Computed example of a mutant assay.
Amino acid sequence: MKTNFPALIEAQSLVKIGDIVGAESALATMAETEGDHALVAALDEFPAKDLLAIIREYDTSKESLVNLLVTPEQFAKAVVLEKRYGDLSHEQLRGMINSVIFREGADPAEFLYEIGELDGGYDALVDYLSERTKRVEHFYRYGTFDLFEYGDEVKTQAIDDDLMNLSGDTDASLSPQDMANVIDHDWMEVTYILRFQLPELFREVLLKLRTRYQNSAQALEDAEAEMLAKDEDDEDAPKNEKEDKGDEEESAL
């Protein structure tokens, strides 16, 4: 790796041997000796996969200098690679996104926009929200995350055709409870920002969420049908064996 920053070479070597704490410490030391701007510039040369290895090991009990200084562009390049870890729960993805985009002084919408601009960015955001599909859909239609509330249906209920012409100017109001809950530095706030600040990105993410949810539901339905058919075959088997035995005995007589 050609670089004017020896600390990057050290950090990359430490990532390769699995010493994530040491790698982060090397970068932090660089910022302390050469300044924050030097670290930000250096991260442009740092491989996205190695940056991801550091960021995804966030620790909520302490501040990470890398998380505090990484730019939206640098962060986006790392986020789209997270799927390589095969984390089906996507908890690490949620944690690292929340820890960076909601840091003090950051503009979450800028980070989300940069993620959406990259190949794989939509899928990363879908992974982030995949466990909340029903509530994201409900929020889109009724302006509330509470599945048992429907807001002002005449005013806020959205139809599918509206999704294709979605804008940030929709006159939809949140209930006082949702307005209080939406500032959660988590998936609700992300959904709100996507819906009202990045409507085109929200549209694509919601369409993908719907497709994934429908595919999952269909797969579950097929599995249940297959299991039911197997149970029916198992119930019929003894009966058929008994009939075959009876036929054999009658033939012997």
Rank of each mutant, 00 (worst) to 15 (best):
M179D: 14
M179V: 05
M179T: 10
A180C: 08
A180T: 11
A180M: 13
A180D: 13
N181T: 07
V182Y: 14
V182M: 12
I183V: 14
I183L: 13
I183Q: 14
D184Q: 13
D186C: 10
D186K: 12
D186N: 15
D186Q: 13
W187C: 15
W187R: 15
W187Q: 14
W187T: 14
W187I: 13
M188D: 07
E189L: 08
V190F: 11
V190Q: 11
V190P: 12
V190Y: 12
Y192V: 06
I193V: 10
I193D: 08
I193K: 08
L194K: 05
R195W: 07
R195G: 07
F196Q: 05
F196T: 07
Q197I: 03
Q197D: 11
Q197P: 03
L198K: 10
L198D: 10
L198S: 10
P199T: 08
P199K: 08
P199G: 10
P199S: 10
E200Q: 13
E200Y: 09
E200V: 09
E200L: 12
L201K: 09
F202H: 02
F202M: 02
F202C: 03
R203Y: 01
R203H: 03
R203V: 02
R203G: 02
E204S: 08
E204D: 12
E204H: 07
V205N: 05
V205H: 03
V205W: 03
L206G: 06
L206D: 05
L206E: 06
L207Q: 11
L207C: 05
L207Y: 06
K208N: 09
K208P: 01
L209G: 07
L209A: 08
L209S: 09
L209D: 10
L209M: 13
R210V: 07
R210K: 13
R212W: 12
R212P: 06
R212F: 11
R212Q: 15
Y213T: 14
Y213F: 12
Y213W: 12
Q214A: 15
Q214R: 14
Q214M: 14
Q214Y: 11
Q214D: 14
N215Q: 15
S216G: 12
S216Y: 07
S216C: 05
A217D: 08
A217I: 06
A217G: 04
A217Q: 10
Q218S: 06
A219G: 07
A219E: 09
A219L: 04
A219T: 03
A219W: 00
L220W: 01
L220V: 02
L220F: 01
E221A: 10
E221G: 01
E221M: 04
E221K: 06
D222K: 05
D222F: 04
A223M: 01
A223N: 02
A223I: 00
E224H: 00
E224M: 01
A225L: 10
A225I: 04
A225V: 02
A225T: 07
A225Q: 09
M227R: 02
M227I: 00
M227K: 02
L228F: 01
L228N: 01
L228H: 01
